[in-house]
Design a protein around this nucleic acid. Sequence first.
DNA 1: TATAATTCATTCCAAATCAGAATGAATCGG
DNA 2: CCGATTCATTCTGATTTGGAATGAATTATA
Lengths: 306, 306
Amino acid sequence: MDRLASIKSFVRTVETGSFSAVARELQTTQPTISKQIAALEDYLDVQLLTRSTRKLKLTEAGEQFYSHCQAILDTVDAAEASVGKRQQPSGLLRINCPITFGQRIIIPRLKAFLAQYPQIEVDLMLSDRIINLVEDGVDLAIRIGNNSDQSLIAQPIGTTRVNTMAAASYLEEHGEPQSPQELADHNCITYTQLAKPNEWNYQSKSNDPCVVKVNGNLKVDSSVAICQAVLSGLGIALAPTWLCCDDISQGDVKLLFPDYKPNLLPIYAVYRRGRFQPAKITCFIEYLAAEFKLDPWLADESLLPR
Amino acid sequence: MDRLASIKSFVRTVETGSFSAVARELQTTQPTISKQIAALEDYLDVQLLTRSTRKLKLTEAGEQFYSHCQAILDTVDAAEASVGKRQQPSGLLRINCPITFGQRIIIPRLKAFLAQYPQIEVDLMLSDRIINLVEDGVDLAIRIGNNSDQSLIAQPIGTTRVNTMAAASYLEEHGEPQSPQELADHNCITYTQLAKPNEWNYQSKSNDPCVVKVNGNLKVDSSVAICQAVLSGLGIALAPTWLCCDDISQGDVKLLFPDYKPNLLPIYAVYRRGRFQPAKITCFIEYLAAEFKLDPWLADESLLPR
DNA sequence: TATAATTCATTCCAAATCAGAATGAATCGG
DNA sequence: CCGATTCATTCTGATTTGGAATGAATTATA
């Protein structure tokens, strides 16, 4: 029996609560995991998990053992990373990020990254739902806006600017509002995921915050849809500039209210705390941070030309 | 490949400097160790050892890796010890101690110990030479007198009393000296392992230290021989009382100079520092310490009836 | 200097192990 | 009550493993 492999399987089993899930994650089959853990129990001469046909539960001994396991895997990782070829980042890198951000920002940058680090493989998991890094076995998540989970480290790597925007075609047809207050006379596309989708906040460059109530005939719950809707000229939206950055550059979409500050949201690279940091993770974060610094749509505000 | 097994083999290889030695220690064959380490190198993609047909040498990477390995094994040991049946002491316990001490003191006590801990196996290695615990893969050594190696922990578990003694038959034939000074007229058996075999130190109960020069027609380099020589009535010897304790009790051997304090030497249990302490080691030390406390020949001076 | 002994690498073979497919039983959700 | 999912078990084929044998190199010994 390979105790290390068993321990790894055990750890992931505890974290996912399922042999099958671990099997999928480790690219093997459920009987393999089942037998590995049985062998580990046999070796330790103690039961680690109580199994019902559908649920797993840690025994007291299992809890005891689990509390040591992360340390074992970390120590081994550190030892292996300290020598040879493994100093070169390698392995499978599981990334999670919001769907549209992945499509627009991450995927176009993956090719160069993978070319730079030929020994890394990426498994990109797109979801707008906030996932649990531990349960889903994700190495790294990209999150926009503040993060609450204290068991995670959130490293800022860029800034999202949220602006009011509309298609040039829409503005031609309906006229361009000159101040947020005029939005009341326009069709505004609202994002139902927000706490108050119909209240848009503004702050003029002279520092007067104000809230504007908006309305419109289109509410959506995905940023993909916002983008599509704006492009189709369906109305005015408040959205991250990177969502339509190409169209803005080409003049198809126009940013409104240049005299108002954009809302700024930090972009974070989020990863597990207290864990040995594989090189594959840190080098991807560094790559992204460098990329974002060069991209005027994502760079930190302070670095932008005024 | 079982990485943990390979790491263990690697660690022992570094410490012994030989595949064959490790193979003997781990009860396997040399090709097995050779292949394990080759597999580990293959896995890490780096050479750990440079091999000539007869010598092994750590590479830089090997040194790097080795510096992490003890931590790995310790973490794993701690994890395994924290659960289940393994809390009960078990496994192979390698003990080293001086030859006569082993024969007279340790072996007679092993039976009860092994009966108390049926899952422990003992490998007792007797040698008067001071061995290297690490190199020889010894868990625990019993040493008499002070220990110098700072990488080892020496825990006092008893006291050796060194007394002047002779067989009753010898005393009948040659008369019994009444003070150390009279030893000049007797045949004294000297122990050549000491720095000054012919100088015996005495301290009367009124605290006057003195040195006596002795001579005789028998010099020996082993404590077994001293014991035999005394019993055969060959002469007077300065020796640990436990060496002939049965004969002393039976009156065949007599302790001289009751008005002088015996020289006291501490008996230490010596084990490796900074390492996770397997239960098998600590329980043997505790067992011995308890046994010695009950044995008037070995108990600590302060506990003895005056 | 020659011989014996020890060391490590390699090869080969038998035995053990392991991974995966198939199957079955239990449970959960609808 | 049915379909889907979960875990355990069994079986089989493939892989891996461990040990004996061998050979080359080196050291110790005579």
